[in-house]
Nucleic acid binder design. Structure first.
Lengths: 336, 336
DNA sequence: TTGAAAGCGTTACCAC
DNA sequence: GTGGTAACGCTTTCAA
């Protein structure tokens, strides 16, 4: 509750000087500055964020919109964003949509627009036209991580090429009967991601002249248990694939577990490849197309902070993040 | 950028009236209120959080301090907190310590104290005396979730009793040679949690007159891979336990995987029980002592919001959250 | 029911 | 190098 006046009085200077001294601005004598700092410390004074935001127009806060906080990709991206923010002394305001359609309106309208953030970073979201308009009308730097959104710059891997490379890996090993575990994501998330990945799968199959069988296009709802279930079902039929491409590592692990459920060996009877390089991938020996959401998040934050810094002109272009193959023990040539 | 004056002007009323109308305060005629609302909507006006915080003293923001965002417990608690906050129209400021000792000072001093939050909720943290003092001097409602902290109310399960119950389950099944996978957590987290759980293990063993062998007290560093490694090592020795109690489900899953690595059957050759009821527990058929961090987080938030509401006198007591046994397929009587 | 005006705690500009 | 003083955009009393 001690405010700037208290410090000014105790240090025998004006509040203007206190403000300058504490923020490291020039035109304060060393003697004064150190006295002010000491006094402020003793009094436990810290400037009120709200007041300085009002006066300066900068809140030193970044808004982060996430669809949920309980998925690997978002966690990693969050940590990456956080890493950059703390470096710049920025705080983070977290807006969790929690996949609740109804709350989006609230978040977009009431919270985000309340001028309490200097910039906004959104993870893997799809926006309605009205939402996008609100964002843009806000006028502050914005970036999307995870999936391309029309009219907003974004950071993300080339989804299609990544899925193609995953599929290609299996084809190169000699597989010809390959299934795909994809599936729509929750509503409101970026639907292009699963679609693009499936398209990449198709690309590779067609390029190799292999058939894409409709009954081998599964939906694993982006998580382990559903994936395990559908893969188990597929493995029960007369004819089964020798390999599986999954849209995410969690689903790939579900596929591996399904193989075990069905008494099949991985990679002996079934090869499995995922996308992500999830924390658990190594433990399961999962071959995967690795991406680095931590770094994607960090880069996004860095770009926004640069924009805010105003030193360099804001970059208007999107960034394609790298992905690369990590071969472990879940893939091998098929046994003929 | 449109501010209250714009609305006032456009609606032909004073800013005071706009403020009252928009916030649903009494003493505004229906006609006026609806006109103001319409105008505000058209202009896309939303009150500035900073300004209203300054004027009213309430920021409508809750601070949440987490050690990291990538562990199941924290994720769930965060989602629970978030659920309550949105209900009360509160926003969330996330302070991620990310286990970096050095940043704690920054978080505690610069950020948290900046009067930008009305209340604070901390997850599984241990505080230095100075940190605790700063928190308390802030004077706003605070609560800890996860581990007891001296002088601050908290919400959490009875760690000791929970671990005791887990061990008891194995003993009841007939096990006599039981190992424990515990291990210190990262620095700065609440160290009482792992200690109390190990103590609970000891309690149950001693009560049953069973020996606690030092070489069967393992450290799995609270995650899957390290746990798997140490358990593998243990299983390689001549004499091995018939059952394992792990301090967390992630470590328990590591133990299950280790059993497989070693060619042992679960639960045939080795029973495993965990604590948490992690998302993956069901997929692994893991028997566990379930707790509900989502609910713990939600409750914490609710308590703080109640305090802020000022309707009821703030509750000063801590809350013991429930935990209960869920039997799946990872535990069974030992084969003699 | 409404309006005027005094804060709220800073920052930033302009004098000195 | 330092101090005075308008903003900043609201909320909240007090009068009307």
């Amino acid at each position: 509750m001690t405010s700037i006046d208290d410090v000014a009085r105790a240090a025998g200077v004006s509040i203007a000087t206190v403000s300058r001294a504490l923020r490291g601005l020039p035109n304060v004598s060393d003697a004064t500055r150190s006295r002010v700092k000491t006094v402020a410390d003793e009094l436990g004074y810290v400037a009120s964020a709200g007041a300085s935001g009002l006066a300066s127009g900068r809140t030193l806060t970044m808004g982060v919109v996430v669809p949920s906080v309980s998925r690997w990709f978002y966690q990693m991206a969050l940590e990456g964003i956080d890493e950059e923010l703390r470096r710049a002394n920025y705080d983070m305001m977290l807006f969790n949509l929690a996949a609740r359609k109804g709350d989006r309106e609230r978040v977009f309208h009431r919270s985000i627009l309340r001028k309490r953030t200097d910039a906004l970073i959104a993870l893997c979201l799809e926006f309605t036209p009205s939402e996008r308009e609100q964002l843009l009308s806000l006028g502050h730097p914005t970036i999307v991580i995870g999936g391309p959104v029309k009219g907003i710059r974004h950071i993300g891997i080339d989804e299609r090429a990544t899925a193609r490379a995953a599929t290609q890996h299996l084809i190169t090993l000699g597989h010809r009967r390959i299934a795909h575990v994809g599936g729509d994501d929750d509503e409101g998330l970026n639907r292009r991601v699963p679609l693009d990945r499936r398209r990449g799968f198709r690309d590779a199959m067609e390029a190799a002249g292999l058939a894409v069988r409709p009954e081998w296009l599964l939906s694993g709802r982006f998580s382990l248990a559903p994936s395990r279930a559908v893969v188990n079902e597929m493995l029960a039929s007369a004819e089964r694939p020798t390999a599986i491409v999954a849209n995410s590592d969690e689903m790939a692990i579900g596929a591996i577990m399904a193989a075990h459920d069905s008494g099949l060996q991985v990679p002996g009877d079934l090869s499995v490849i995922g996308i992500d390089n999830h924390d658990l991938a190594e433990s399961f020996g999962l071959t995967t197309m690795a991406q680095d959401p931590f770094e994607q998040g960090a880069l996004g934050a860095r770009i926004l902070l640069d924009d805010l810094g105003g030193i360099v002109p804001p970059r208007r272009t999107s960034v394609t993040a790298p992905s690369h193959l990590i071969v472990r023990t879940s893939t091998a040539p098929p046994i003929h």
